[in-house]
Write a protein that binds this DNA or RNA. Structure first.
Lengths: 182, 182
DNA sequence: TAAGATTGACCGCTCAATCTTA
DNA sequence: TAAGATTGAGCGGTCAATCTTA
């Protein structure tokens, strides 16, 4: 019994959850990015990265950092470019392996993060606090943790076309009908 | 609920929820975008837009469409450019007001959406179905609905500058002007 | 004056290709 | 060969400015 039957209600609920996740993310990231940018010249992703870096005082390999915040290696390079230009982060080499380089937060980075966190974390706590009782928030955290992206690595990103009987896709030979070069 | 004192635990839990939301969004959109792009030349946002358009057979004002999917007006223009080039969507003018133009899904758009939905919705239902019992999923939907982005308009996006921003939304019953306001 | 739509400049991020070192 | 990091090209999206019409 490889695949299960998907009832219309299953699809309906999944679709609802997905839509709400998308819209919540869009609304919240836009708001917070605007606030953070205006107040400290940072983005939401910058904060996420700096948060990882303060917890790793000896630095962290860029590829591992990428996995933690769900960016690609090139995405991390680009993001760190900005933080390095702002002197919030610096590079360090690995003595034993010249291929790897570490990202290390600077004192200025720690200070800037501390300042930015004050307002940002308060806004976040207020936003959630206004909407959820403590037990509800705990429940939300637990439920969200089951979604992809919850682990440490990014293995789960490599997602194979699973279940048999997947409609819309002939298994052999059929080239994906690419609609337009966008 | 006026303002309350923010305990360290409040902040902690809010931060956890925020982080999980960010990572779940990053992981899932990347996966689904890759699948949709390969199979049908579409993106997650394209699907969201087409879904709105099939439910509005007479078309919808671009500004209202933007609010629905949480994009800015220019974002909608850009996204529709692609869909129009692929002939999945076409433009229509409002007879009573030459400023507004409507986005209308084409037959090809309906067909492509139908094809793409088959696999995409199944993948979505499978993803959620593997992780949640029906009651849990229902709970997740309800909890997510309380976050910003849950309403119909984008009033909550317009966010005034200043330290203590009010993130309270007023979903309110502002009727989106349907066709021919006259 | 204001509302709707678009454009130009730019940012964040991805993929594919490349370079370097193991 | 493979792993880590970067680069070039390009997409998806934002903001600010502009154009047109009410």
């Amino acid at each position: 019994l490889p695949d299960q039957v998907l009832s219309a209600q299953d699809v309906e609920q999944a679709l609802l959850a997905w839509g709400r996740l998308l819209r919540a993310h869009a609304a919240m990231t836009r708001t917070f990015n605007a606030e953070l940018q205006a107040a400290h010249g940072l983005t939401v992703s910058d904060i996420e990265v700096l948060k990882v870096l303060v917890a790793e005082p000896d630095g962290i390999r860029r590829v591992d950092l990428a996995a933690r915040v769900r960016l690609t290696p090139s995405g991390i390079t680009r993001l760190l470019e900005g933080l390095q230009r702002a002197e919030l982060v610096c590079k360090a080499q690995c003595p034993g392996d010249a291929r790897v380089s570490y990202a290390v937060i600077t004192d200025a980075g720690r200070e800037t993060l501390r300042e930015a966190e004050a307002g940002f974390f308060a806004a976040l706590a207020r936003l959630f606090g206004e909407r959820y009782a403590p037990a509800e928030l705990e429940r939300l955290v637990e439920l969200l943790a089951r979604l992809p992206g919850g682990g440490e690595g990014l293995d789960e990103l490599c997602h194979t076309e699973g279940a048999a009987g997947d409609s819309g896709e002939a298994p052999s030979g059929r080239m994906p009908s690419r609609i337009t070069p966008r």
